[in-house]
Design a protein around this nucleic acid. Structure first.
Length: 343
DNA sequence: GTTATTTGACCCTA
DNA sequence: TAGGGTCAAATAAC
């Protein structure tokens, strides 16, 4: 197992190196870029095959934790992984658990077994039981705005710490994009309650909503009540759009890479994968002018990478699609033509 | 011009 | 009927 983990870290190292030199390679050395991709692909595929051969993934958390504690691994790699993956994994896990109809923070050991150890030590949040208001079944007399709570509508409450820096009025991101539609003073509460619905509600009929309110006795903590399930789930920020059948390395892609020296490897993948290129990322709050098609590439890329690693380690993926199968084989299959011109 | 936020009003539920 | 949830016009941001 150690050997496999070393292999994965070797792949990460290669990916890191590739990321560093990506702009130059994309502009000048498409052939080398292609070979580098091939090499990374082979390393990860080998690692995945080995992992698949291992029946028990219970060994994984301990095994993966080892390199992080041992100095022989490149510390910068560790930082690179940490910087991009810790939050990502958290989001992915939340997404997956939410999709399974559970609180994102109601995480047990079984969940952790299937996830990267990088989850461990991330922001701790308390799960608060639902307030338990009974669902009503009485018929509404109004045809204007039916407000019957759907039977079995899920309501789950979590407490999350308020940001310590920046705009502390905005609750921490939970991986979804929300649109605020109301705010109310609540009797007996010091702080108003904000009402949010999923940004994709109108176009994709996503019923998810949430209410956010500061705790009276702890203004630095938000209580967030989630209601309804996201039907726009794929990544948590974008509506569900089937991925393209293959990732073709095109001249357009090399142009995209070349024009964006700061593009990370993950962003590079997501730009191609999510169907658009070049648009800058946007914050959840405030108009972005792009509507639901706007994709926050950084986060999307994180999801892709996290899914990729998750797929390797967990052998299941966060959705019906295995990112490893989606990303790597298609890259691997590509052969550079002599016509692959530089921009 | 488009989209998000604010906020007063409306209306349903307990 | 009070309080909470939502609507929608006005406003702000981009």
């Amino acid at each position: 197992m150690k050997e496999t983990i070393s292999l994965i870290f070797h792949g990460c190292n290669l990916a890191k190196d590739l990321e560093t030199s990506l702009p130059n390679l994309a502009n000048l050395q498409p052939g080398i870029l292609s070979k580098s991709c091939d090499e990374i692909v082979k390393v990860f595929v080998t690692a995945r095959d080995r992992l698949n051969a291992l029946d028990s993934i219970k060994l994984y958390p301990q095994a993966v934790a080892l390199p992080l504690q041992q100095p022989q691994y490149d510390p910068s790699l560790h930082e690179w992984l940490k910087s991009g993956f810790t939050q990502t994994m958290e989001h992915v896990m939340q997404t997956r658990i939410l999709a399974a109809g559970r609180s994102p923070f109601d995480i047990n050991e079984r969940d952790l077994e299937g996830s990267s150890s990088l989850f461990r030590g991330t922001q701790a949040m308390d799960h608060v039981p639902d307030s338990g208001r009974p669902a009503t079944t009485t018929a509404s007399s109004s045809s204007q705005r039916p407000r019957r709570r759907k039977d079995g509508e899920e309501r789950r409450t979590v407490q999350v710490p308020a940001p310590q820096i920046g705009n502390t009025d905005i609750p921490p991101e939970d991986g979804y994009t929300w649109r605020k539609y109301g705010q109310k003073e609540i009797l007996g509460s010091k702080f108003p309650r904000s009402y949010y619905r999923c940004t994709h509600q109108k176009l994709y009929q996503c019923p998810a909503k949430k209410q956010v309110q500061r705790l009276d006795d702890n203004p630095f903590t938000f209580e967030v009540l989630y209601r309804g399930q996201h039907s726009c789930h794929m990544s948590s920020t974008a509506p569900s759009v089937p991925p393209p059948p293959s990732l073709e390395v095109t001249q357009e892609m090399t142009q995209t890479i070349g024009s964006q020296p700061s593009t990370t490897l993950a962003q590079w993948l997501s730009m191609e994968y999510l169907g658009a290129g070049g648009r800058s990322s946007t914050a959840a709050a405030g108009g972005d002018g792009a509507g639901p098609s706007t994709v926050r590439y950084g986060k999307e890329a994180d999801y892709l990478l996290a899914d990729m690693v998750d797929a390797m380690f967990n052998n299941s993926g966060s959705s019906s699609t295995n990112s490893m199968d989606l990303i790597f084989p298609s890259v691997e299959d590509h052969k550079w033509d002599s016509d692959d011109k530089l921009p």
